[in-house]
């Protein structure tokens, strides 16, 4: 058995923040298991990203750098990863529960005939040193604790679950280049095109963050600050509206959230100047986190809000935009 592997995901030539998070998690396990931490880097022209993985916690980096891996496709990636894992027999494999991770790891696990726990929010070891994971089920209304005794034990971890340790620049990792050969049948699915998305164009039902405004926005000019807040959040954020705001033509009908509009389920819903009548709540009450800004302390929305602010949204929203920009600048 050779090591705890971490799938180091990257985008546009930069490691994603999940790499550091997972390496921190892997390190903790490695200490108990006395095994090495190995980062796996797949892609084309990715060699330069190997070095930073050392300071983040990797003892070794396996670099599968090949032109055909330049664009993610399930089966070539699956082939490279499973070949490598069959050959080197890691005991644990951790990856991010990202778009690629969710697509790829189940197929990898199936090919290796091993167990995978997906989208985990907790990670640890049993007394027998088996991998133990906590993961939400029923949309987070319950949790299960699972154990994988087979090897390699695989898990995909929800981003931002693990808090990364700061990089230790004194540490370096051994980089090993892997020769890649992919059989042609792995390319039976062909990528025709990648259509880039724009954050403002995110559909309400798919958005991870929604900033929503009500009649209290007063006019469509004011509505712009909500767009500014959404763009401060960046990817996956968009703007919604209550029916009252749509009726007053501050926003278009396709932005309407509620019983007769769209039913949304984002990670974060910020209701600005929305009182929270049931017709609106019916469309957004399953949002994971609800923030409400309203000048009326009696507004029913506060009963649903995880974070409520009684105050003037025209002062609070601009201040919040600045705060979010600060945070995003650090990322």
């Amino acid at each position: 058995m050779a090591g705890i592997w971490v799938y180091a995901e990257h985008k546009d030539g930069k490691l994603k923040s999940t790499a550091a998070q997972l390496l921190t998690g892997a390190r903790t396990l490695a200490e108990t298991l006395s095994e090495e931490v190995v980062a796996v880097l797949l892609g084309s022209g990715v060699e330069a990203m190997a070095a930073p993985l050392g300071p983040l916690g990797a003892d070794k980096v396996l670099v599968a750098d090949a032109q055909p891996l330049g664009q993610y496709l399930t089966e070539p990636y699956c082939h490279v990863l499973t070949t490598l894992m069959k050959e080197r027999q890691p005991s644990i494999f951790l990856g991010p529960a990202s778009s690629i991770g969710k697509d790829l790891f189940p197929r990898v696990a199936a090919r290796l005939q091993t167990g995978l726990a997906s989208d985990c929010t907790g990670i640890g070891l049993t007394e027998n040193k088996d991998l133990k994971l906590k993961r939400p089920v029923y949309a987070g209304k319950a949790f299960i604790e699972v154990v994988i005794s087979g090897r390699p034990a695989m898990a995909s971890i929800r981003p931002n679950t693990l808090t990364p340790k700061p990089a230790d620049s004194s540490k370096t990792a051994l980089s090993e280049k892997i020769s890649v050969s992919i059989p042609p049948e792995a390319f039976r699915v062909k990528l025709k095109e990648v259509v880039k998305g724009k954050s403002e164009k995110v559909d309400l039902t798919e958005a991870s963050i929604i900033v929503s405004g009500g009649r209290a926005m007063q006019n469509s000019e004011n509505y712009k600050i909500l767009w500014d807040l959404a763009s401060a959040f960046g990817e996956g954020a968009t703007v919604g509206a209550s029916r009252a705001a749509v009726d007053s033509s501050y926003a278009s009908h396709d932005m309407q959230v509620g019983q007769t509009g769209k039913v949304v389920n984002p990670n974060l819903y910020i209701a600005c100047g929305i009182s929270g009548a049931i017709q609106h709540l019916a469309g957004m009450r399953t949002s994971k986190v609800i923030v409400a800004i309203n000048k009326d302390p009696e507004a029913p929305i506060f009963q649903k809000a995880d974070f409520g602010i009684v105050g003037d949204l025209f002062k609070l929203v601009p201040a919040l935009i600045e705060e979010i920009k600060k945070i995003k600048a650090h990322d």
């Binding site: 167990g115 319950a142 949790f143 699972v146 995880d306 409520g308 105050g311």
Partner: peptide, 26 residues
């Protein structure tokens, strides 16, 4: 089963949300 369920648990009861009234916007 390769992935064995050991335990079920419920998340902590949803706390009443935080609510801030007044204060400096920033």
């Amino acid at each position: 089963a390769k992935v064995k369920i050991q335990a079920y648990s419920l998340p902590p009861e949803r706390q009443a949300g935080k609510k801030i009234e007044g204060g400096d916007p920033a």
